[in-house]
Design a protein around this nucleic acid. Sequence first.
DNA 1: GTCAGTGCAAACTTTTTGCAACTAC
DNA 2: GTAGTTGCAAAAAGTTTGCACTGAC
Lengths: 162, 162
Amino acid sequence: MDSQNLKETVRQIFTEYLNLHGHRKTPERFAILDTIYSIDSHFDMETLYTRMAEEEKFRVSRATLYNTILLLLDAHLVVKHQFGNCSQYERCYCSRTHHHQICTQCGKVEEVQDDLLREQIAQTKLKRFVLSHYSLYLYGLCSKCSRANKRKLKDQIKKKEK
Amino acid sequence: MDSQNLKETVRQIFTEYLNLHGHRKTPERFAILDTIYSIDSHFDMETLYTRMAEEEKFRVSRATLYNTILLLLDAHLVVKHQFGNCSQYERCYCSRTHHHQICTQCGKVEEVQDDLLREQIAQTKLKRFVLSHYSLYLYGLCSKCSRANKRKLKDQIKKKEK
DNA sequence: GTCAGTGCAAACTTTTTGCAACTAC
DNA sequence: GTAGTTGCAAAAAGTTTGCACTGAC
């Protein structure tokens, strides 16, 4: 599905959601949805706020962003992540569930695709629980930090030998 | 391993960690470690703070709690979770990695053991990344909320039929 | 016309930071 | 003795809330 088509589809889904729950279809809400679906990866509130103002030329208050995100979460059009200091969000309609690989040293987050693992998690039998979605966070060291640490360790050994 | 034995072991590991990194072995640090290893499940800072003061009769400042938790995370004696509003922590030495099942409606968190899934995640091959640990959060509806929703839906249909 | 939704600012919560006092080494 | 730690309070960061105004219905 191309970007315009996807945006059109989620706009329809959101419209239906708003109708069903008796919420108003304000321009702010659709502008926020549009902006979110023009961001490919995850984002935090600050990023969304600046992006709306700068790129979309549509300024909304932070309060409205938080309100709207709540609706989008409920409508299953956005998922929330909690790595790092602040909440991260991500569009989720028509995007495959992926896993997040987080470097504990530099904080860098990368998306990981693993079809087998995805299937296995989805098929996990849970007692008295209806699974809706899940998040897998893999913590460790990225190659950059891993190399930096090895170098540091070598230098320390050298110093001791002197 | 019984509780006292476990506490003794982690105290030794922490001592070694502090020595290795040139940190001081203060009574506060060991009191915090002890308290954490007397809590079976996850906890937040507020809980730890009150518990230390009330049950352990050892008052430490919040700043010290945050500082010490950082060391314990680095020493791999504690893991951090981010479900809900505030950070949750959990002891992790000699405790099997487990998954968390979180009800999106009432916020209830339950621990899930699944050996097969645990193995599969640990064996996942990651490119240019050294895995240290991971967190799997399964979101959905607990049986209580699921039943409550069904009841609510039925009532709504009844009302419409009238 | 009405009331849900918005923007703004203030409030609140959680976490971090600066600094004086303390204490492990 | 000294430098790493602690406690306190203030600050920072992220999120929520109260209220007057606006605009979708």
